[in-house]
Design a binder for these strands. Structure first.
Length: 702
DNA sequence: GTTATAGGTCTTTTT
DNA sequence: GACCTATAAC
């Protein structure tokens, strides 16, 4: 039976397939299990065609896992279910229907860098001072408007308020026109333009309403207005809509998520049934008790009490470190203990509020030789060489893509400098040509001989590559591009080793394309690009279970679970973050984040904070986080770091150096009023002189 | 048109 | 303390 092993509420949620259903699922209450079984039940028991089922997940990884689990229950036909993120589902729809709203199906998707570039460009063309108006802010505002489904033109009409609003409005309009001219969408457009498609073409909407008779949305508390609208449109006809969420885990208000979407579900669908999943199967009673105690401090919430049949488990360990290095050292040591007691590296996760906090932990891990993996921050796809390669591919699959063309027009160096580019752009805009077309008219642009020659050659190269695309797999085509453009040679023969390593990354990229080719034979480069553009931080990790400690932001940890969890930087100003501390809503969302973090842990939770911390190279003293006071004392064991900074050194002392790790003082001598310590380190750095006045050393007990 | 250096500026979270 | 950007020399 599909419902075997489920509790009564879970079973009810699985079996309630007709009509609207709201599942309020606390952390660790088995909602993924409920969702997968529900879909399996709809297909297996209710005999619904898989083609009629839609499931929207928060990450691609979650989609993949859900799909695998459904395949296990109902077999291969599960392949016809549409499972994906809002963004990937919309891409799929837009690829089929793009022409209806004036785009070509080979459209490209801008990554956040490209978006910023285009915003800046638009602002400069409007003669705005980038110092006076931060492009980041403008971008943020435009994104917010798109999430609220406000079109560029509506905005321009109503923007008589502040100067800033006018800047936003006109930048938005120009930016949007440029996107259109480039046959490109930004992330927000993927949702917004799909809605536009549906509202302008009722027949298309109807077709998808007929198709998606059973709709599921996970993490509903984090949907924004546009996503809400999209779901409303699709669900209108059959009203078989199942949303799953937990208002206590709403952590994306800053990117437009609107918690009232879940709070008002029963108003939107008065006939809705509601199922509450309150039994937690994941964490020990201690961890769950702590999580409940913290979240209770939020005022804006529906009362809910998670309970657990699990054992009490170990106390929560609270550690007051001296500074970030000490904190990292503690985490590293604790993990080593765990591993020595037959624990595994991959059971452990380190969670932090901001990506920048990962560095201190990383350094401690390197010293202690602990294998780790960082999710998010700078990833493979953010590397310059990868972005360059992707830009080539984007231009080749979407000839209108000006942003990408500008990126690679002179990479590798081919003597097409800024002034040449400017002339080409002016010419293109005057003649209403794309930049790529303008390249072909090199001689008419009025360029100097050398520049014209270079431009023409580049144009020919791109044309040749575009012609050769036919019939090749993505992998074959990418290797061809790497070779013909000279991109690989650029890195392969570079004098600096660092640059030569980039060639390896390009080869690594071919591994990615091979996997794509295997999964989707005969798909085009533009499909590959879309897949890559929509990967989230969680998706980007490798699939195989590696024996590595996982490091990530608290945001990225949502939906995951680990035996042992460390939350570091538990300090006022860090967590809750400085910029969220202005209003109670901000604080409450930070508290949700704290709740998410705590409930990631199955067996053991460690919380650390620093008494001093260096930010910008400036020393700063933070109070411990207010959330710490909200965890009941009797659930915790508190420790204070016993290492300390010292000035009275003697031979034989064991010390810890911030970079080189543990060592022993061999000798002390005076040199120009300063003492110099000769230290034998355990690490491969060996014996080194250290100035304790410059480098802060910590005393470590033997 | 290309490259090197110095100064100014920033760090929340992400599809 | 790191990263990008404006400026000047090649």
């Amino acid at each position: 039976m599909i419902t075997d092993g489920l509790n009564p509420e879970q079973t009810l949620a699985v079996r309630t397939t007709e009509g609207p259903l709201l599942v309020l699922a606390g952390a660790g209450s088995g909602k993924t299990s409920v969702l997968t079984r529900r879909i399996a039940y709809i297909i297996g028991e209710r005999r619904v065609d898989p083609w009629n089922v839609l499931a929207i997940t928060f990450t691609n990884k979650a989609a993949r896992e859900m799909n695998e689990r459904i395949v296990k229950l109902v077999g291969k036909k599960a392949g016809d279910i549409w499972i994906g993120t809002f963004h990937s589902i919309c891409v799929k729809i837009l690829r089929r229907e793009a022409e209806r709203i004036g785009y070509s199906p080979t459209f490209t998707i801008l990554d956040s860098d490209d978006q910023m570039t285009l915003i800046k460009q638009s602002m400069l063309d409007l003669n705005y001072d980038l110092k006076q108006y931060e492009p980041e802010l403008i971008h943020y505002k435009i994104s917010q408007m798109k999430n609220e489904l406000e079109a560029a033109d509506d905005v321009a009409a109503t923007a008589k308020r502040s100067l800033l609003d006018q800047v936003v409005a006109s930048t938005y309009r120009l930016y949007q026109r440029r996107l259109k001219d480039s046959n490109a969408f930004d992330f927000d457009d993927l949702i917004g333009k799909t809605i536009e498609l549906f509202s302008e073409h009722p027949d298309v909407l109807q077709q998808y309403q007929e198709k998606f008779r059973y709709i599921h949305v996970d993490e509903y508390q984090d949907t924004n207005r546009a996503q809400y609208q999209l779901v409303q449109l699709l669900a209108q006809r059959y009203r078989n809509i199942c949303v799953v969420g937990d208002a206590d885990q709403a952590i994306y208000r800053w990117r437009g998520a609107d918690i009232s979407n879940i709070l008002n579900f029963e108003r939107d669908y008065p006939e809705a049934q509601v199922v509450k999943l309150e039994q937690n199967y994941r964490s020990t009673e201690t961890i769950l008790h702590a999580a409940n105690a913290v979240i209770r401090h939020n005022s804006q919430r529906k009362e809910k009490n998670l309970w657990s049949g699990n054992e009490k488990g170990a106390n929560i360990q609270i550690f007051a470190a001296l500074d970030q290095e000490d904190e990292g050292f503690y985490v590293a040591q604790t993990i080593q203990n765990h591993v020595q007691n037959d624990g595994k590296y991959q059971d452990c996760a380190v969670l932090y509020r901001a990506n920048s906090q990962s560095r201190a932990i990383e350094e401690a891990f390197l010293q202690a030789a602990i294998p780790y993996r960082i999710l998010g921050g700078m990833t493979f796809y953010d590397r310059r060489e990868i972005k360059n390669l992707m830009a080539y591919l984007k231009v080749l699959s979407n000839p209108q893509d000006e942003i990408s063309l500008l990126r690679i027009i002179n990479v590798p160096k081919r003597s097409i400098g800024d002034s040449t580019v400017k002339r080409l752009l002016d010419y293109a805009h005057e003649q209403e040509l794309t930049l790529l077309q303008a390249l072909g008219h090199g001689e008419k642009v009025g360029l100097s001989g050398r520049a014209a020659q270079a431009v023409l050659e580049f144009h020919r190269l791109l044309e040749q590559l575009a012609d050769m695309q036919e019939g090749l797999t993505v992998t074959e085509f990418v290797s061809l591009v790497l070779q013909r453009t000279g991109l690989r040679d650029l890195y392969l023969h570079h004098p600096k080793e660092e640059e030569r390593n980039r060639a390896d990354n390009l080869d690594e990229f071919l591994t990615v394309t091979r996997s794509f080719d295997r999964r989707h034979p005969n798909r085009r480069v533009s499909d590959f690009l879309a897949e890559v553009s929509l990967l989230s931080d969680i998706d980007k990790g490798s699939d195989q279970e590696e024996a590595k400690v996982q490091m990530m932001t608290l945001h990225a940890s949502k939906g995951l679970e680990f035996d042992v969890v460390f939350i570091v930087g538990f300090e006022e100003g860090i967590f809750p973050h400085q910029r969220s501390m202005f209003d109670s809503e901000g604080i409450e969302e930070e508290r949700n984040l704290c709740y998410v973090g705590i409930t990631r842990a199955r067996k053991q939770l460690f919380i650390t904070y620093c008494t001093e911390r260096t930010i910008y190279g400036q020393m700063q003293i933070n109070d411990p986080s207010r959330f710490l006071l909200e965890i009941p004392e009797d659930l915790t064991d508190r420790h204070v770091s016993n290492s300390m900074y010292d000035t009275n050194w003697s031979i034989g002392d064991r010390v810890q150096h911030p970079k080189w790790g543990i060592g022993v003082i061999l000798d002390i001598r005076k040199q120009e009023e300063e003492s110099v310590l000769q230290i034998q380190f355990q690490s491969k750095i060996g014996c080194q002189d250290v100035l304790p006045g410059k480098i802060r050393l910590k005393r470590v007990d033997a």
